[in-house]
């Protein structure tokens, strides 16, 4: 169908899932959870489920060493995963590394079309850390280098 009001507007060829409760959604019931489930960028839904779902065996865990391959600079970034922010399509991860004696933190949104791959280099020691957010690593570089150095105590 043509769109007469804007020649440059994009018309994404998206269809609602067949089991979508259309009548309820039109009333706004369960609309935001529905959008959180279905508004992933093209081809990203599976990747996002793998990384962030607590049911997924491949889910990310804080304290692991992660490499992100990106379209834009920095094309690759490796660091300790210090935070996971779960927000559906808007979920993000925070990586921390020390480069040229300067602490660098990068936040990545794996749903962004520029992010190509999120690879786990090494899982956290003993499988998991005791905190959900490892912000304390900013103030204790020794523990940080221990994680990065791979001394799985």
């Amino acid at each position: 169908m043509p769109y007469p009001f804007s020649k440059t507007a994009l018309v994404p060829n998206l269809t609602l899932p067949k089991d979508a409760p259309l009548e309820k959604l039109k009333l706004g019931k369960g609309l935001m959870p529905f959008l959180q489930k279905n508004l992933y960028s093209a081809g990203k839904a599976e990747l996002m489920h793998d990384l962030f779902s607590r049911q997924s065996p491949k889910q990310l865990r804080v304290g692991s060493i992660v490499t992100v391959l990106n379209d834009q600079a920095p094309n690759t970034f490796t660091g300790v995963l210090i935070a996971i922010r779960r927000r559906g399509p808007d979920s993000s991860i925070t990586l921390r590394n020390i480069l040229q004696r300067t602490g660098i933190e990068m936040q990545f949104f794996p749903n962004a079309p520029g992010v190509k791959e999120v690879k786990v280099i090494r899982p956290p020691p003993k499988g998991r850390m005791r905190r959900a957010k490892l912000y304390y690593l900013r103030d204790s570089p020794d523990k940080m280098s221990m994680l990065a150095g791979g001394k799985n105590k």
């Binding site: 609309l31 935001m32 399509p89």
Partner: peptide, 16 residues
């Protein structure tokens, strides 16, 4: 209209 909440989209340039 009614405000339902916030979410993020990515545009054709890959900007959030």
């Amino acid at each position: 209209a009614r405000k339902r909440g916030m979410i993020a989209l990515w545009n054709d340039q890959g900007v959030r």
